[in-house]
Structures are given as C-alpha cells and as structure tokens.
Design a protein around this nucleic acid. Structure first.
Lengths: 340, 340
DNA sequence: AAAATCAGCCAAAGCGCTTTGGAACTCGCC
DNA sequence: GGCGAGTTCCAAAGCGCTTTGGCTGATTTT
C-alpha cells in the first residue's frame, strides 16, 4: 500500500494525503481525519527510502564504531545501548552502526555524512581536541557527544557525568580518613574521562596538602587482568598505597584478587573505591567486601542521549548545550581509616 | 556530485555511466575505464537512498534488539559485535539496530521487512520453535540465526557452537575424576543453548550410570549475583555437589565468591568448569584458581555471521545451511578428583 | 456588485538512481 | 548490396515520497 493507492482510494490527490498525514495546515480537519483513518485502517506506512530521497531525512541515528582484529568494544557499550535503545524504540528511531577502521574513523564519518544515512550521530569516548568532533562540526552533521572534549574553540552539545567531581569526592573521603598514599588505577588517559578523574583526585589530595605522585598512577585498559597487574606493581614499590581508587568495577575485580593474593585485607590494610557504571551483572555490593563507589548509570546516559538526539532531529533542540550530571558517592564497607 | 553531473561531464548518458560503474557487460572496456576513472577522480559515490529506492537493496544488515526498562542486553553482545563489525567494515556493510519492545519483536520485524530497510537480519538467542524464525521464513526476509532452534518444520541457516558436545565433554571429565554429585548452573533455560548444555551434561552423567537430578540444576540470568546465589542454594541442600558446571564466566565469579565464603577450596572440595565466550576483560586463567573451561570465541562467531550474511546478500550463498562449531575443553587447575 | 482574500485542494516537478526498450552503427556473410 | 547479429549507447519510465506553484469556489472587503 503506497501513497498513490491510498490517494486514489480516497479520491484525493497524493499531495493532500501526504499533507494530511504530515500535519500540514492546508487541509481541512475533516479530510485529515478521513485520511488518517484510512491510513491506519490499511496499515499504510510511508516508504522510508522514498521519504528519505525526497526529504533527505533518514529517521535514524548513527554511531561510528571503531573495529579491528585487536580492537575491543567496551563492555560499557551494552549498557549504554540498553538505555539508548529503550528510548529510541518509543520514538521509532533506529540506530545505524557504521564500523570503521580504528584510527581512521574520519573516512566513515565523511561517508555517513555524504550519504545522509542518518540524521544525527553520537560520539563516545572523546579525547581532548577530539578530531571527530572537529570533523562533524565542519561537516555540519548534527551530533551529540557522550562525554567531553577539551581545547575545542567552539561549543558542542554533550552529555557527561562529573568525573572530576566524583573522584574529588572519593579522594576527599579518603584524605579525611587519614590516607596519604592514595593510588589511582585509571582507564586510558588519552580520554578525557580519565583525565578528569585524575584531576579530581589530585585536587582532593592537594587540598589536604598531599601530592598524587606519578608512581601512584596507572593508566591501563580496563580489564580484570590489568587491574590485577596494576595493583601488584603499586604494592611492589616503596611507599605502597593504603588506598586505591579505581576507574571501573571490572578492574576492581583484579584489584581485589591482587590484594588477596598479598594477604592484604580490605579495608583494614587497603581501602578501595571504584567507579560504578551500574551493570546488572556485576554489582559493587556483591564484592567480597562491599565496594564503595562513585556511581552513575551509563544506561541513563544512553537514554538521555537518545532523547536529545531525537530532539535535535525534530528541530526541538539546537545550539550546543552541554550538560554534566552529578555523581553519587556511595560508601560501603571497603573504606576505613588509614592503617597505623 | 551525482550521476547526472558525472554523465554530462563525460558526455555520456546516465544509463551508460550507471552500467559502467555497476559492471554490466554492454559497455565497452574503454568507456568503462574512462568512467571508472572519472568517478574515482571526482569522488563520486552513488546516493544510497536513491539506489535503495530504485533497487530495493539496502546494503545493510539488521538486528532487532529487544529493549525495555527492565531488559538487559547481554554483555556477550559486545564481543559478538566486535567480530561482526570487523568483518562488516571490510565489506562496507552497516548494521541497523532496530529496538523492539521485548516480547513483541514481531511488529518490528514486520516493519523492517516491509520497509526493506535491510537486506538481511540475524537472530540471536533463539528458543525452541522460535517465533521470530518462523516469522522471517514467512516474510521471506533473508536471515541467519546465531544459535539453533528446535522443532521447526523447515530448515534454516544458522551458525552455532556445539553446546551439547561441550558440556558432555566437561561432564565426562568430571565423571572420570570420580564426581557423582555434579551441579549445573545454567542460563535461561527457555533458550536452546541452555537446553543443549543441560542435555550434554545429563548424557555424560548417564554414561557413567548417574543422574542429573533437578535439585542439581539452576537456571538463572547470567549475572555474578545469580551465580553466587545459585551456588549457595546448591551447597545448602543435602547431597551438596562436589563439582559445578557453570554456563558463564560472569556467573563463575559469583560461584567462586560463594565457595570462598563457605570455606570450600577449589578444586579440593569442589571442582569447577565454566563456559568461556572469550572476553578480553575477564579471562579464566586469571581466576584465583585458574578455571577449566569449555571455550568458544563468540567474537569469531560474530565475524562468521557477518561473512555469511554478506554472502547471502550478494547471492553467493542461499539455502539453509547450518554449521556447528566444535568447542574446546581447556583443563586448568579448577578440577580435581572427587573428595573423599 | 466588483475586487480582494483565503481555505482547500491538485498537477507536476523533483530527489538520484536503475532498468526497459530501443536506436545507431559496425561486421561478417551469403 | 542487403540482411541478421552484435556491440555500444541512449531516452525515458519508473521507485514512492515531498513540495512548489497554482487553481477553484466561497467568503469578506470596499
């Protein structure tokens, strides 16, 4: 069933039917009702390809996905996607994942933009002066950033959590508890989220008159194994930490394993705080010692991005508004006063 | 730059240019070369919307994603996607994720099919007599199943691993080691993968003259917490298991936690085998006691699905060929002879 | 009563591609 | 020299929608 058939069946022109369906004013209410009715009754669905060709609008949001034999997609992606998908569903938006060679996302962004495959894209895991953002700005393809960049000379729309504030809070708590040798096991520090977290922790230490020495910082890909290794290497140096702040629950698994192996008790010997993105399948309260966390649902962020993307597409939102969410510090059994 | 412009610039008709570009025979080699050349030089890219409208082909593969506030996307999805994306990239295929309300995927499949949004879809996590497969068969939309269904009265294309064989092997090993009270902590047993695994384990026990009692089986969503709980409930009953087979590494985390809490040593008190889908961020050799596993890379499966989907789209593959991959049993420190 | 306005509808021109149904021209052959 | 078979190309008709630029008849204005 296409427009033409519907039109002849109603004894109207395609124009009128199209306008009635799309809410244009130059059609009488009665006609509109008649058209709407018939459309519903016959299950008419405009052909998206045709509509896209005519309007240039795709009704889809895009994401360029870095891939490669040795590239791992972040497990956080799934949770983010749960939120995004949940919102997108209720608004009939599809998500197009365009795989790109890691390191050369540019080509793919250009293709996506040139083909008008999608109405907007979102960018994740941004870095300072992120080239993708600069490119999108230049291409004029609407976008929304999950996270923040830095050092850009134009404003850009984004949704982020207050990573710096979160780790500042975590640090402050530990300092208050008398810790001075606090270590940070961070994610990839070419990404802004990791930079912000380090900044927050450093600021908290500085406020107490202490220093976050480079020897106390590790920046690694967020796997269990890397959490384990980083912890061992921290413990094996002079002035081992009495507290560890860790950027992910997955790494925290490795941290706990390492501490255990060294017969160090949490929190008596070492306090531990981790960032929790809220996975359904791994919860901080279920760690051997319930884990204190800075918590922010990445799923909620996904939903919010979808919401704002939908708003941008329909023209309700424009401009470059940024929003930064506060992060809860949830204190559980894994922190205590500094030993000794 | 569109076809028309390219054509006038070459002083040829759109027809000829189109044919030259698409490899039709009725154009001279010289002309073809000339056209190809100019196209490349001017970076001509056919507009996909137009092409789709004309041909009905989309150049994309689809996936209907069940979503909802209380629906969690399986973390395995990320790994699967890594493989799929990696292959898709090299063949310029995009992936369209169409979110659907969990429980009513049908509407979405129908929409996707009617709109010809994608050339083929893949179906994951199938159940016996899976309605999605029946629907796709009926709609005539090309599809490929990751996993297997059962009780369908038509053949269907699929890629699966030998879940039954894997768990049979695991069970056989444990039986050989003298275990008789073997428990299974399985995933959602409405899905065929879980059914097959249970079947395999049961067969192994039966071969030794034993039985897999219902009290020894748990079927839960695969989270750390559920692994923990299932283990406790298994231990708390008369005739506690001396060996546990577990359907995922994530659940195995919980199993290990529960055993530890009860002061049961692996493998002295309880042997443990888990299925490993090969995550980069959680590896069985890094468990406190290295974990024996049935191993199969879900990422490789993703790549293979993409490959076959591409083949179907381009018409190289048709029919309903199924393929089932063998699964390695990797023995590590977590298994030993039955105690006592 | 004539002119201006306006609501309500329509025909037709795109959007950029593929594909059908020839047309023109060259060859080889009887 | 004329005819059939190839070869190489083209004009034009879709694909299904949106949108521009009217047209018509009724209502209001002067």
């Amino acid at each position: 069933m296409n427009l033409k058939q519907l039109a002849t069946m109603l004894d109207l022109s395609q124009t009128t039917v199209s306008r009635a369906l799309n809410g244009y004013p130059e059609v009488s209410e009665e006609t509109r009702r008649r058209v709407m009715d018939a459309a519903k009754r016959h299950g008419y669905r405009p052909n998206p390809s045709a509509r896209r060709l005519a309007t240039g609008k795709a009704g889809m949001i895009g994401h360029v996905l870095p891939t490669g034999a040795s590239v791992d997609i972040d497990p956080h992606f799934v949770e983010f996607l749960s939120g995004l998908g949940d919102y997108a569903r209720s608004h009939d938006l599809d998500l197009v994942l365009s795989p790109a060679e890691a390191g050369d996302e540019e080509t793919t962004y250009r293709r996506v933009a040139a083909n008008k495959q999608v109405d907007a894209v979102y960018v994740s895991a941004p870095r300072p002066r992120d080239r993708r953002i600069m490119l999108l700005q230049q291409l004029g393809l609407p976008y929304l950033v999950h996270g923040r960049s830095e050092g850009l000379d134009f404003p850009y729309a984004h949704v982020d959590i207050d990573n710096e504030g979160a780790f500042h809070e975590a640090g402050r708590l530990l300092v208050q508890l008398g810790h001075r040798r606090i270590a940070l096991i961070n994610g990839d520090d070419t990404q802004t989220f990791a930079i912000f977290r380090e900044r927050g922790l450093r600021r908290a230490l500085a406020a107490g008159g202490f220093d976050l020495a480079p020897a106390m910082v590790r920046s690694v890909q967020m796997t269990e194994e890397n959490g384990y290794r980083a912890t061992l290497s921290l413990l094996d140096q002079a002035g081992a930490p009495t507290a560890i702040v860790c950027s992910s629950l997955i790494m925290a698994l490795g941290v706990v394993r390492a501490l255990r192996e060294r017969n160090l008790a949490v929190p008596q010997d070492v306090s531990l705080v981790a960032h929790d993105d809220v996975f359904p399948w791994l919860r901080p309260e279920n760690f051997p010692v319930p884990l204190s966390t800075t918590r922010s649902s990445i799923r909620a962020a996904g939903a919010r991005l979808a919401e704002r993307l939908a708003a941008r597409i329909s023209g309700v939102e424009d401009g470059a508004r940024g929003e930064v969410w506060p992060v809860d510090l949830v204190v559980r059994g894994s922190v205590a006063g500094a030993p000794g």
